[in-house]
Every structure is written in structure tokens, then in C-alpha cells.
Design a protein around this nucleic acid. Structure first.
Lengths: 188, 188
DNA sequence: TTCTCCGGAATGAACATTCCTTCTATGGTC
DNA sequence: GACCATAGAAGGAATGTTCATTCCGGAGAA
């Protein structure tokens, strides 16, 4: 029973790492099994097929990330502070876990991305509340939420890609500078 | 000779469309050949292999896009005006050609994306000059170029994805609203 | 012994790529 | 103008490879 959990986890982690490094199509089941220290057949004891495995990896990653993003988040603080807090957490968790970031990147631009809607819904819930109140109190631009998301998530994702590719060095100071610019984009 | 060009073009267009619709891995060579009205073997008369074909499609798309983005662009106009002009053109060409947008999207988040560097270098040249002068004259934030690119291209790409997915209706008015927010993000 | 869970060889499907046959266009000959 | 020879292009069946997935013999627990 505990053994079950370990094997399942090992498979999930192996899949995450390999897919991040080599893409969906560069990671045959045999390779996942090898890295997980498990027989090929075993994968199919825990997951119906490769698709189910990949969705499971996604859900796993998503769960962890949401947990980190809303850590220490206090809905009572002022808008700008809350905004900065959420953004910092996002940077933190995406940059600490480059594998997870690369996995998500691949996941969303692929047939699996049908689930994208879900992810945004889940990940952006705290932002949604922030935006709603901010618009009401005329602190944030009165434009559709999706536009605000684009203004925030777009640059964050883009800059982390540049960072991971080695084109842009992101340290705490620069991240804060950047978050300041994001705030300028959405504030009234 | 003319016939050659037609066949090559037909193959490129078929590949572009199919890859945009079904992804790299949903488009076997046989399918490309079929849509192009050509025998499978013929593809290999024009392109060494599938990779070369895909890179060729990319270069083709890139060339067209750069042409559109810098259309009617006047380096003598004021910063904000030039910025708005370039952004509008980007929206224009990416939204007019959803197939090309979807192709590019796939291309960059894939092993082929090694070429990403080139694309940014090419596509962003007019922006690079704009940013340089803007920083010098203290109109634009004095942060690394890559940060400015992230602040501009990130949201544009993100919002077009949302648009194509049907979550965000982008008309001319909203696009201008959006570009205004982008300007807020990068201006001093 | 029996019941579960594993491993990994075996299977079959999907493809990229090759290779040989068939077609087409060109131009030389009568 | 009719005919044919030849080279280069096109087509698509055949090949070989790379997987996902299955299946069955075996190890270990109960």
C-alpha cells in the first residue's frame, strides 16, 4: 500500500522530469519506466494509458503550485501589496521548479491544453477576487478580467522562459522591478 | 520551373495548415502529401526530411510577418505613436492569420524552438531601436530590453491565445485599450 | 497453495523515409 | 509534323524503426 504510493510517485516524477527535458514525443514509456526504476508494464497498472499519466502529472503539479502561490496570502492587505505578494509567489514557485514550469509550458501548447481553461480557473482564483475588488474601488483598470490576466500572466511566463533560456537574469530585485511594471499596466 | 514553385508552395501551405490544426505529431507526411495533392515521395524531393520542411514553413511565415509588422512604419514619429503602430500591426497580422499564429505557437514550444532566439532577434528589431532611443530620452523605463520585450510580447501572445480560444473578444477598440496598458507598463 | 503485483519480452500500429516504376517534357531525327 | 529517345520529376508501395500497449510467467506475501 505504501509501496503502491511510492511506485506511483516515482512514475509521476520520472514522467515530469523526462517530459520537461525532452518533450512528450521524446519520452517513450520505456524511458519513464527505466528512470522510475520500474518495469514498463507497471506503468499500466497505475495509469490506463500515457494520456492518463500525463494528465495525472499535470494535476499533481497544479496542486502543488496553487498551494505555493497562495501561501501566506492575506486578503486583508491593500491591493498593491496583495498583488505583489501573489506575483512574487508565482515567480518563486515557477523558478524554483524549472522542471514543472517546462512541463506546464509543453502541456498547454498541445492537444492536452484543452484543460487550459481549468488551469486558469484554478490558478487565477485569488487574482480574480483581487481584480474584482480593485475594479470596484477604481484602483484597477476597468477592463475584462481576461485582459488583466493577459497583462499579468503573459509577461511573467514570457520572462521566465527568457530566464530559463539564459537570456535574462532574474534576481529578487529585478523581479520586483518587473512586478512594478505589471502593476503599472493594470492600475488605473 | 513554375510547376516546381507551385508544388513546393502547396507542400508548405498544406504543412502549415495541418500543423496548426493538429500539431506536429498529428500530421504524418502522408497527410501533408494528400492535402498538397502530391505524392508522399515528392515531399522528399523538395525537403531533405520533415524537420527541414518544418523549418522552411517557419521561415516562410516569419518572412511574411516581418513584412506586415513594419508596414507603414515611420521611425520619425513620436515614441508612443510608433509603439502603438507596431503593436497594432502585430495584432493585425497574428489575428488575420490564425493558422500562422497557431503554427508559431507550436514551433516555439518544441524542440524546434532552439530557433526562438533568431525569431526574437528578427521580429523585435524595430522594437529594439524604439526601446533604445526611448530609454535614452527617459521616456521608457530603464530596464533590460528583454524585460521590455516580455512586457510587450507576453501579453500580446497571451491575449491572442485567449481570443482564439474564444475567451476574450478582441476588436479594434479593445486592442487599443490593451496597447494603452502595455504602454503604461513600459513607460517611465 | 493461492492471490497479487511485477517485469519485460512480444505484438501490432503508426510513421518517416527509400526506391523503383511510371509519367512528362524536351529536343533531336526523319 | 510525326516519332522516338532521354533525362528529370512524381508517385506510392515497400521497408525498417520506433513506440504504446498487452500478456504471461514468476516472485513474494498471506
Amino acid at each position: 500500500m505504501n509501496q503502491n504510493k511510492d511506485r506511483r510517485t516515482a512514475i509521476l516524477e520520472a514522467a515530469l522530469g523526462l517530459i520537461a527535458e525532452r518533450g512528450f514525443h521524446g519520452t517513450p514509456a520505456a524511458l519513464i519506466a527505466e528512470r522510475a526504476g520500474v518495469g514498463v508494464g507497471t506503468i499500466y497498472r497505475y495509469f490506463r494509458d500515457k494520456d492518463e499519466l500525463i494528465h495525472a502529472v499535470f494535476q499533481d503539479v497544479e496542486k502543488r503550485q496553487i498551494e505555493i502561490i497562495t501561501r501566506n496570502y492575506d486578503e486583508e492587505r491593500p491591493f498593491r501589496e496583495r498583488f505583489v505578494h501573489l506575483c512574487r509567489n508565482i515567480y518563486h514557485c515557477l523558478m524554483e521548479k524549472p522542471l514543472e514550469f517546462r512541463f506546464l509550458e509543453q502541456y498547454f501548447d498541445s492537444p492536452y491544453g484543452v484543460e487550459q481553461r481549468r488551469r486558469l480557473d484554478n490558478l487565477s482564483r485569488p487574482f480574480g477576487r483581487l481584480f474584482f475588488a480593485g475594479k470596484e474601488q477604481q484602483v484597477i483598470k476597468d477592463v475584462p478580467d481576461k485582459m488583466l490576466y493577459s497583462l499579468v500572466f503573459g509577461p511573467i511566463a514570457f520572462s521566465i522562459k527568457e530566464h530559463n533560456a539564459g537570456f535574462l537574469q532574474l534576481d529578487a530585485e529585478r523581479i520586483d522591478l518587473f512586478i512594478g511594471a505589471l502593476w503599472d499596466a493594470i492600475r488605473r
